[in-house]
Nucleic acid binder design. Structure first.
Lengths: 153, 153
DNA sequence: CAAATCCTCGCCCGAATGGATGATTTTGCC
DNA sequence: GGCAAAATCATCCATTCGGGCGAGGATTTG
């Protein structure tokens, strides 16, 4: 058991050592090796194993990124998106919605007619349909319901 | 310069090696050392440096805390706080504000009268004052202005 | 093409609302 | 207690609004 571990290590540093020797030879450092062969060899081997250890250490621990998600509450003025579903569900047309919006702005039928270039009677017809579809009997009520349904801001 | 680095390494593994040898002696592994001294010694040194490397690797990386700040758009139903300042600025009374709130809910004067136990005429008087102070001529307009001024939700 | 839907406009009538004015009672405060 | 502000109620009148009914034209869709 321990024997195999030792043999593996021996094989490993033997190979590394051989490689290093070859490298040193190649770059003409032979004289150094001759002079201080043991120190140089040992030092380089130590350096190599330290590097290996560092690599292993980084490898086995993986990226221990501690992810902290900090959620910040933002006031967020809901930008208002028209509730198309509700719009279709109650069968309200674009023109009717447009009239409802103008009613919500506080305009009279006469003013709305002037704004969208319609006769006052037409505006009355549209508002009438709006009331029917919203089940309202007053414009203030229609506005309230329209807001609740997300049809107007 | 390089000399000092090498000397340091030599000193380091020299000391470590000595310590290991002492350790081995103490635990009666001398016969092994005698037989395969070079292999055992090198292997143990390699093991030591690998351990050092692993320790270093873990040390230098530390725990990288990755903080992610996520802006969560809270529905933020602004709890609505009555704008007392505006209220006082335009001189609107509590009763008048109450009537304005009910108008905003879509109630008729008759319904409001029933709700707050007033005669319809009184409700009309209050709503009239509300219109004066808001410079409105219609209840839908008064509601719109009231919302803008922060008098009603 | 025919049917359906939407948009447009008109008329009538009753109910609701807005505006003006006045009066009495209640309430808060000095 | 007395004053000022607020709240209450009323009447008259004009305008607006809501509801019912009808109808013609434009656009889309089967």
């Amino acid at each position: 058991t321990m024997n195999s571990g030792v043999r593996k290590s021996v094989l490993l540093y033997g190979l590394l050592g051989g490689a290093l020797i070859a490298l040193l030879k190649a770059i003409e450092y032979r004289y150094l090796v001759v002079d201080h062969s043991v120190e140089i060899y040992g030092g380089l081997v130590a350096l190599a194993f330290v590097s290996l250890g560092i690599w292993l250490g980084l490898r086995i621990t993986g990226r221990t990124e501690l992810v902290i998600v900090r959620e910040v509450s933002v006031p967020a003025t809901a930008p208002f998106t028209l509730n198309e579903a509700k719009l279709a569900a109650i069968g309200m047309t674009r023109r009717e919605l447009e009239v409802l919006e103008l009613i919500a702005e506080g305009l009279s039928n006469h003013e709305i007619a002037g704004r969208v270039f319609l006769s006052e009677n037409t505006v009355k017809t549209h508002s009438k349909r709006v009331f029917e579809k919203l089940a309202a009997t007053r414009r203030t009520q229609a506005v309230q319901l329209g807001k609740e349904l997300g049809l107007i801001p």
